[in-house]
Design a protein around this nucleic acid. Sequence first.
DNA 1: TTGTATGCGTTATCAG
DNA 2: CTGATAACGCATACAA
Lengths: 325, 325
Amino acid sequence: MSTTLRDVARLAQVSVKTVSNVVNGYPHVSDGMRRRVEAALAALDYHPNRAARTLRTGRTRVLALTVAEADGVGVLARAVVRAAARHGYRVVIDPVDPECQGVATPPLSVDGCLLLTDLPAEPPTGGPPVVRLGQATAGGSADRVGIDHARATRDAVDHLVATGRSRIAAIGVAPGQPSATIGRQGYAEVLRAAGRDPLPGHLQQVPADQRSDGYRAARALLSQRRRPDAVVCASDALAIGALCAAADAGVRVPQDLAVIGVGGSEEGRWTRPALSTVAADPAFLARQAVARIVARIARPDAAPVTVVTPHTLLARESTRTSTSG
Amino acid sequence: MSTTLRDVARLAQVSVKTVSNVVNGYPHVSDGMRRRVEAALAALDYHPNRAARTLRTGRTRVLALTVAEADGVGVLARAVVRAAARHGYRVVIDPVDPECQGVATPPLSVDGCLLLTDLPAEPPTGGPPVVRLGQATAGGSADRVGIDHARATRDAVDHLVATGRSRIAAIGVAPGQPSATIGRQGYAEVLRAAGRDPLPGHLQQVPADQRSDGYRAARALLSQRRRPDAVVCASDALAIGALCAAADAGVRVPQDLAVIGVGGSEEGRWTRPALSTVAADPAFLARQAVARIVARIARPDAAPVTVVTPHTLLARESTRTSTSG
DNA sequence: TTGTATGCGTTATCAG
DNA sequence: CTGATAACGCATACAA
């Protein structure tokens, strides 16, 4: 059995309350008392029991970063961990497995969730408060923090046009996974706004946000009669798949095809050619998200807020101007 | 306030104990009673309070997968989540941030830890039980589950020799991070066993297990007077860095240089050329690891166990025989 | 088969 | 400034 406040109190010859006061940094404790208690604390190697504390206070001081796919979250996770630490919160990544949905696995005991996945569509009422991450589209009952994805796509297309591309295709995820969506209408609008024509069959809507989906979509694109000379992908995972498809098809990037993603993932820095991408500043995004969830925990019934974080286009090799190739 | 057992008991006109029995699937409950209780449970949308349950039972039914770097853990995490679900456990990924070490952030309340990092060197006594993952080197007080890393390295080298390579270099992580280590002595032994000479300067020991470290090490290797024609890396992250370094230096893989890693990461399937690697079966490894930690939770004082899981060499493009290039 | 009562380790309320 | 003491919500020994 681990040592409790009572053990410490007994050793230090004080009441439980006094020990608790010392542990929690309560200011009105006399010096002598404090030292006596601290000595006992150290001697017994006391660690507060989280469950008891949580039961009593109703708070865990733990935040969940809920993700569908743990694979590319390194950068964001680190940023969130640091941002949360400033507020005294710990962060765990909660990888939801679609196959385990039904299985009776105990729910997590956390004060709030940062949802990087689009499951569930609507967070259950009664559970901990939720902030959606990744795309700041207003609507829905939850707070949202993320870049303006439509705007990011537009910036990507503008960049492709500016670097001399004209037949610009797109790969998005079919509705249901908004974080990586490029809609049919959005595709047409964006292209027209950039002074280019949307080409029939040049928008691929894939079922999931995976590298393999990007691969298949890009293969389809590259086998068309009017082959695109650029493809904008709704996520970096899709873009990396597209990069591989091009390589396997003998299509040179960036000479014959430009590829750009959205997300600013670390992995995109380590492909060859390196992947151009539209990225949010992860530290900024994480700070906003943590600030939101902390505020929401404090006032659960406040009106939902949407925070749009700025994004930057990172032009790397995969979209280098084709005239030099 | 959320609904408690008492609320349900009141509504169903039974005692708290009976409700508890129903919730926990206690068999000796009469049918009528059970239905009455279940109706009340549903009507009030009852969810047990985790903290209270944990305080009472001393168990959280949550396992932590503790990692230093969340970036490449997707495959393993999924496998662990599934393996744990069979035992009624939930899994969270605990990303430890070296910069947050000092900060007063609350400890996690879990029943056990699967350590994929080498920090801390010795898990603190008194905390939850620990199983080390990734390399099954005996010694130390903790259980271990993983492949035989020395053997994996040997298999990689054998494969390189079999495919016609002779000047075989290596990139490992300097002592302190055993999961990605290729020692000085090990390097020499392995090469001699494979009938090749260890060349001076052909073992690079890098400070951390990152793509950037692999990149720098490979650059150094490629600028040497006797340039290697193959490099075996202690991890896939290092190997991917090496792949990039070769590309940037204009060295063709696999024609001029073969590259192989260890780990079987998903990312390695999506580089071009695709990365050859020595991989454990993640599902098998996860099952072993979860079985270990569950056993350890049940009997904390049993003697530590080391489980060696089998590995397979996945020969992909990055080590294709050079005669065809 | 079901109800009553106790305690898990903390924090918070209230006297002293 | 410090000490008793009462919850927090649940599971269980024991009684009925």
